[in-house]
Simulated scan of single mutants.
Amino acid sequence: MFKKGLKDVVAVQTNIASVKGDIGELRYRGVLIDELIPSHSFEEVAYFIWYGMLPDESELKHLEIKLMNGRQLPLHVQKIIDALPAEVPIMDAVRTAISAFAHDGFTNEPIEEQAIILTAVIPVIVARYYRKQQGLLPINPDPNLSHIANYLWMLNGKLPNHLQVEALETYLKLTMEHGLNAATFSARVTISTESDLTAAITSAIGTMKGPLHGGAPSGVIELLEEIGKPGNILTVIEEKLQNGEKIMGFGHRIYKTEDPRSILLREKCTSMSGKDEWLDLATVAEKEIIALLAHHKPDRKLYTNVEYYAAAIMRSIEMPTELFTPTFSVARIIGWTAHAIEQLQDNSIFRPQSEYIGYEKK
């Protein structure tokens, strides 16, 4: 039976994550995200997705050292990044740089080691190229900083505060993995040909850059900036609803109830109440907007999606919109590499059929 876009066709069996949109549930390796995310670091959750278990103290330290060592870009990759014209979009620069890791010194490593190295270098690539675009010199990684704190350091050249790191890390832990989305499917299709991990991640990045998949939540930022302060919420939203405009950050094609990721992000933002005006505005606005949507569109059941609070967090740390999708990729590479590894463990090349509907000469 023809299913356009393979919608609802089961093509993969996986142990990595399950997404149940009808009940608003997301699990990593069988564990609900609300049980896993709040109490574990980015590095611990990454280890869990890769290996199916949480690391002990020694394993965690070993992973942290590998990630730290992996921050050093090979000289030829540095030269490629520096040679790209500044008008090349960041995701294209990342895709090009990642593809340059297809050399013997890298591909001869075990695939699990390759996954860690690619995870370590993607924020370095993003930061180096972004600063090039801004006419700024690159900043060397700081071995004393965590994966996410170091990313912010390399972007801005100043040490991020604890709240900034905590907010961004929560968002990125929640976006590491989300089932067989388009980019993850691209990675699995590529590596199913027994190509290499570099090619699989290059395919995933190329897919992620499409606005229908990895599009940035810039529309939510525009909404929050238009609202400006709590007293304007009712006026702004009522006007948009009367004009038939979409309220950005509400509704999701998979989740028919609350997005479980938005719930955790809301809790994180609420815990920072009074410490950041944008996070405060987002939490207050969400309540009023949901009430207005329920009144105007009672049959739609529109809830907050992950992009809503992601936008609030990005705005609070002054992350430029052109860095949204690359930053998303800094987290999602965990899922891409885990799926590529899993695909090779019981591989079968993807070869769906097509149905010809064109002209035939009689």
Rank of each mutant, 00 (worst) to 15 (best):
R300Q: 09
I201G: 08
L241C: 00
L84Y: 08
E245V: 05
T235Y: 11
Y47A: 09
A97F: 02
K173E: 02
D196K: 00
L224H: 07
E113A: 13
I254H: 02
A86I: 15
G335D: 05
L234I: 11
E267A: 13
Q343I: 12
H178W: 12
T198C: 11
M248R: 08
P110A: 01
A167F: 12
V94M: 14
D299I: 02
R315S: 02
I37A: 03
V88S: 08
T190I: 15
K20Y: 11
G215S: 07
A93W: 01
Y47G: 10
T14Q: 04
S195T: 14
T321V: 08
N243A: 15
Y303W: 13
I148A: 01
K287D: 09
A294E: 15
N15G: 15
M91G: 05
H62G: 10
D8F: 13
A282Y: 00
L174R: 00
Y308K: 04
S273L: 13
H76F: 14
I357G: 04
E194M: 15
I333L: 12
G105I: 07
K20S: 09
F250V: 04
I122N: 11
M1R: 14
T321S: 09
L63R: 05
R95P: 05
I117M: 07
S58N: 06
D104Q: 14
E355F: 09
G21C: 06
K66H: 10
D259C: 09
D276S: 14
V306Y: 05
P230A: 03
K79D: 12
F324I: 03
N347H: 11
A120W: 01
G105N: 05
L32Y: 14
M53G: 01
